[in-house]
Amino acid sequence: MGEAGAFVAELNDLQRLLDEFTKHGYTVYGPIVKGKSWVFSKVSSIRELDLNYTRTILPPKKLLHPVKNRIFDFKLNDGFEVFESCNVKNIVIFGIHPCDLRAIEKLDEFFSQHPEDVCYEARRKRTLIVGLTCNAVDEKCFCNSLGTGPEASTGFDILITQISDGFFLVEVGSSKGLDILKTLDLAEAKPEHFEAKRKHIEHLKSSFTKTADFEGLATLAKDKLDHKIWVETAERCLSCGNCSMVCPVCYCFDLYDSLDLTLKEGVRIMELDSCQLLEYAEVALGGNFRKERSQRLRHWLLCKFGAAGGSTYTSCIGCGRCIVYCPANIDLTEIAHVLKGG
């Protein structure tokens, strides 16, 4: 928590911070209002950002593990030639909430396992993370129950907390963050500012209305593969895949080739995929090991409870997106509750 230093800033100082990022060649993305929700979008002014946002539709993974991502280009001749084309630029993701910070840490750990996903690593190395402590929680937030928020202690280069109207505590999380902040000549934070943050966190913690208990579920849920909750819930599920698309830790992807009109040149694409879709587990000759919607739903929920192949890398961080964006009102905390015998 601010081990490498902390400062205080006003709104115009945050604008100077954005300008400094731009000067260093970074494109800045932050939460802006879109319809009745928010999205991470390119921004140049602090006034475009809504620092009071609750959650974006897509999590920051859309910038680090993009929905569609070109892995390499190729040319077909006698055989083939491959040209690497990881498209990487310097970006800042500004205003990431603690739950999403934890999600990025999980993605980092997952993609850096041998053999590393070099495109992810390259993007990640050129990304600066500016965390933002939430100003408020809503009725779908439950990070507090999972210990993934509302206070962030790691996973950021800079962490901003609004401690009073228009006044911010700015904590350093890395040397890259410090290098940028030093150029702004901000006043150093005093104990009273940390105390103000502590009170804000306390207030946040007391304002959660949603709770979840996933303790031990990774084992427990697998002992209950025949529980009726899977089939009952699947009767409502549309298998649309929204839950996994908006999940900040769902990393599953498809790989496919796309040829241009000459049929001589093409690209290999990595595209976000969802285990909720029928084709996901289909094998040659039409075999499918998760043909039933209840099997697919169960697989995703087991995954969020930490019992699938992604282990804790893909387990829930409590952002509430899958609940908000499920057209069938499926709520994984309610399923957890039933499985735990509640």
Binding site: A307, G309, S311
Partner: peptide
């Protein structure tokens, strides 16, 4: 993917 990333081949855990 073949390298434990894309998720498709998972059998449970």
């Amino acid at each position: 993917c073949g390298i434990g990333k894309c998720g498709h081949c998972q059998i449970g855990s």
